[in-house]
Design a protein around this nucleic acid. Sequence first.
DNA 1: GTACTTGGTAAACAGATGTTGACTTAAAAA
DNA 2: TTTTTAAGTCAACATCTGTTTACCAAGTAC
Lengths: 193, 193
Amino acid sequence: MAATSPRRRDATKTRQLLLEAALQRFTRDGYAATTVRDIADDAGVNVALISRYFKSKEGLFEACLTSSVDEVRRTNGDTPLSRTPEAIARQIAGPCTEGLPHHLVLLLRSSGDESADRIRLDLLRSYGQRLSVAAGWPEDDEEMLLRAQIVLAAATGIALLRTKSGLEPLASATAEDLVPPLRDLIDALLKRP
Amino acid sequence: MAATSPRRRDATKTRQLLLEAALQRFTRDGYAATTVRDIADDAGVNVALISRYFKSKEGLFEACLTSSVDEVRRTNGDTPLSRTPEAIARQIAGPCTEGLPHHLVLLLRSSGDESADRIRLDLLRSYGQRLSVAAGWPEDDEEMLLRAQIVLAAATGIALLRTKSGLEPLASATAEDLVPPLRDLIDALLKRP
DNA sequence: GTACTTGGTAAACAGATGTTGACTTAAAAA
DNA sequence: TTTTTAAGTCAACATCTGTTTACCAAGTAC
């Protein structure tokens, strides 16, 4: 089957549609406030297909989470510290204007499921460590790890506050607006003396 | 009725019990994931009393929100900038060890209700403004207001990450651990040149 | 003690929600 | 064309959730 002739019935395509719709809903409204019927309607497919392709609502949530984790890893993978403020600013500010979901915000959503929580924790931990190391600190420096995690927390907090409350001027600040303060923040927390 | 001889049937007392239980649940699990039966069980009272004393689940949530807003206003009311890091650190770190709810985290919870969202937004806005002014900036400085709101976002992000994910060392950092990085963060974002 | 007010309880309700199984139909294989 | 496989639909289910109503009982006033 050539990629140019799309089947009218395409399992992978509808799976993708469901994943994207779920990503948006879960990120914006959280796990509990989102119904499978909402997601299915957004995707324009039948509700029963969620159970078919993802086994359950929780399965779909986990799929969203891993997809989001991959995206974050891919986007901010090997950014040097000097470019971290821009990377974070783009991560925070970019999606809001493009209608895409905030990957960082999804990381704060919880289904109460244990395996989902582990996925989330793994990313947060490794990302914090990467940040600390990128700043030029030894891997086992607990104090700097704490500071790196505070940077992470700040980034997620900003992303969340932007989407949840229309707090101005934060809510509609552009990536360019966010870079200078983020640079100050990151420098203050991670810069070597 | 003397305060020393508690009535076995005390409306204000059970109202308070419900409020405290709800505060804890809403803060920890969010609005949608919390059921009125959970709250009633925690408080050790009948479910129907929620509708009686707070009209509805949303009414109870709003009561929690205003109570939390008052608490935040009372605690961090007129703190000068020099003592802000300690105040925030205590706000973030204190409750976690005492089993009390994180007022900052509740501010990120949403019921989808409009009036609740306005309460939340009002506090965030005024708090951001107060922070900017406390740092010695004119009230209408948009750029500094943005920076103040980023401080606010960082604080809430930290509080949220501490409660939601067991991200170490952030999750079990004491108030004393948090003060130095928070001071660096606040100084970097708000200090006059 | 009796009447009355009020705090509390229990059961039932209507609607929503996640999930399942039987059925239909489009596409591919024969 | 006929058969077979897979994608999608539909309706029902069991359960959960917020709310209401009717009822009970403790405390107060008479």
